[in-house]
């Protein structure tokens, strides 16, 4: 049964990595959950790029197995604090990733 990523993850957060990038940390309780998500191929550069309207080549996805985590980093479409920005700390940008379906 398909589940949303947020239902599998223990922690799923977004935050500025400096004012030009947003980084997402998706952390799981155990290696099995991490593997389920990685094996589903539901998270790839193309999907993230589409969701956040950025170039696929600017998306970085790095599994960080020591804490059963995946780190995703994208460029901000608006620099933090620019007139068009709507989230200065970048800490409420995670919803689109949270709702990705994992089959």
């Amino acid at each position: 049964m398909a589940r949303k990523l947020i239902e599998i993850a223990q922690i799923l957060r977004s935050k500025n990595a400096g004012p030009l990038f947003i980084t997402f940390d998706i952390m799981f309780d155990n290696h099995e959950d991490l593997k389920t998500v990685l094996d589903s191929h539901a998270l790839d550069e193309t999907i993230i790029a589409q969701l956040y309207n950025v170039d696929g080549q600017d998306v970085s996805i790095i599994p960080y197995e020591i804490v059963n985590a995946i780190k995703i980093t994208i460029p901000r479409t608006n620099v933090s604090g620019d007139i068009e920005d709507d989230d200065i700390y970048g800490c409420q940008k995670h919803l689109k990733i949270a709702n990705i379906l994992i089959l």
Partner: peptide, 17 residues
């Protein structure tokens, strides 16, 4: 704890390594 220390290493960083 190890998970917290390792997790904090990647906090606000583009690359955890």
């Amino acid at each position: 704890t190890i998970p917290r220390v390792a997790a904090h290493t990647m906090y606000e960083q583009a690359n955890p390594y």
